[in-house]
Amino acid sequence: MILVTGATGTVGRLVTERLSGTGPVRLFTRDPRRVTSTGPDVEVAGGDFDDPGGLRAALVGVRSALLVTTNPLAPAQDRNFVTAARAARVGHVVKLSAQAVADTGADDLITRWQRDNEELLRASGLAWTFLRPRAFMSNTLGWARSVREEGVVRAPDGASRNASVDPRDIADVAVRVLADPAAHAGRAYPLTGPAALSAVQQTDMLGELLGRPLEFVELTREETLSGLLARYPEPLAHALMESAARGRQGAKTGVDPTVPDLLGRPARGYRAWARDHLAAFRA
């Protein structure tokens, strides 16, 4: 049995789709009504990381688990999961982490939280694998409305480059690792796309695919922080601002060969991702 947490999120949903039909899968989610992947081998376990009893029940009989947590202000959630996984004798935990943990210059709240999560698993006695992606290409879906309605992308740091990764590649790697724990236990995998692109370059690619020019409007630091504070608690907003500052310094441009090495094919580029999601940007 494979357990997928965050089963309705960006990566969890893609992993679930790829595991469908390969054997028994259990999906752990706060809202089972949002689960779209169903089948005779798919179970749905409702619950959350703040419920140790629900976690223990969801982990019974699980040999390999994908752990996706998203709230740096709730560090007990990872501890609850690891405690329950040890009690259930789970064989292998695949943790979705972040590439920033390997950057000695990164010390923001979110990065420290992910480092702590990795150390928690290392000390747990469980077999583990860490997946460390760069930014998701799908983050640019946040531009969709302004592109549709105005032909405009508004974003900070238009010249900063990031070796962002297609979430489908993350999911493909996760499925491979979940299926063969012995080959991947004790490994930390940096996951990037094939090139480091700026927001301006991504905007240009979108415009070419849409067949109409798009305008890029660079947000000021004040505008960026204001937008983040409207969406996130203040500590997270400031952590994201610190992360953006590292991006301006070139800390996110490194391209790593792990995705093609593991999958035996090139990593998907942003143009391919955008082409496959173009409907979201069309007027």
Rank of each mutant, 00 (worst) to 15 (best):
E149G: 04
R168M: 05
F136I: 14
A163P: 05
V165F: 07
N162D: 08
S138T: 01
R161L: 03
A174I: 08
F130Y: 00
R154G: 00
R168V: 14
G151V: 11
A155S: 13
V152F: 01
A144S: 13
V147H: 01
S146A: 15
G151C: 09
D166M: 10
D180P: 04
A179N: 00
S160F: 01
V173H: 02
P167D: 14
V153P: 01
S160T: 03
N162V: 15
A163E: 06
A155K: 00
I170T: 06
N162G: 07
V177A: 06
R176P: 04
P156M: 06
G151N: 05
S138P: 00
V173P: 01
D166C: 09
F136K: 11
V153R: 04
A155Q: 02
R176E: 13
G151L: 09
M137S: 07
R145L: 11
A163N: 13
V147A: 02
D169T: 14
R154L: 03
D180H: 15
V152T: 12
P167F: 12
S138W: 00
F136G: 10
L141E: 13
S146M: 11
D172T: 05
A159F: 02
D172K: 09
S138H: 03
S160I: 00
V175D: 04
N139Y: 11
M137T: 01
A159K: 07
P133A: 11
A171W: 04
V147P: 08
A159E: 12
R154P: 00
V165C: 08
M137K: 05
P167N: 13
R134H: 15
D180M: 04
V173Q: 06
L178N: 06
S138I: 00
M137V: 02
R176Y: 01
R145N: 15
A144E: 08
M137I: 01
A174N: 08
V175P: 02
L141C: 02
V147N: 03
R168E: 13
N139G: 09
R176F: 02
N162E: 10
S164F: 12
P156A: 08
P167Y: 12
D172N: 01
L131A: 01
R168F: 05
N139W: 11
L131K: 00
G158Y: 01
T140F: 07
D166P: 08
N162T: 08
A179D: 09
A155Y: 06
V177D: 04
S146Q: 13
A174M: 07
R148F: 04
D172H: 01
A179M: 03
G142M: 09
R148V: 12
D157F: 04
W143G: 12
R176I: 00
W143R: 09
G158M: 06
N139H: 15
S138D: 03
A159P: 04
M137P: 03
D157E: 10
I170A: 03
R132L: 12
S160M: 10
A163K: 08
P167S: 15
R145P: 07
S160E: 09
N139T: 14
G158Q: 07
V165A: 09
R148W: 12
A159W: 03
A155V: 06
G151Y: 09
P133W: 04
A155D: 14
R145A: 15
R154I: 05
F136P: 05
G151M: 12
A159L: 05
T140Q: 08
R148P: 14
G151R: 12
R132K: 11
S160W: 00
A159C: 06
G151Q: 11
M137R: 05
A174R: 05
A163M: 07
W143C: 14
G158I: 05
A135F: 10
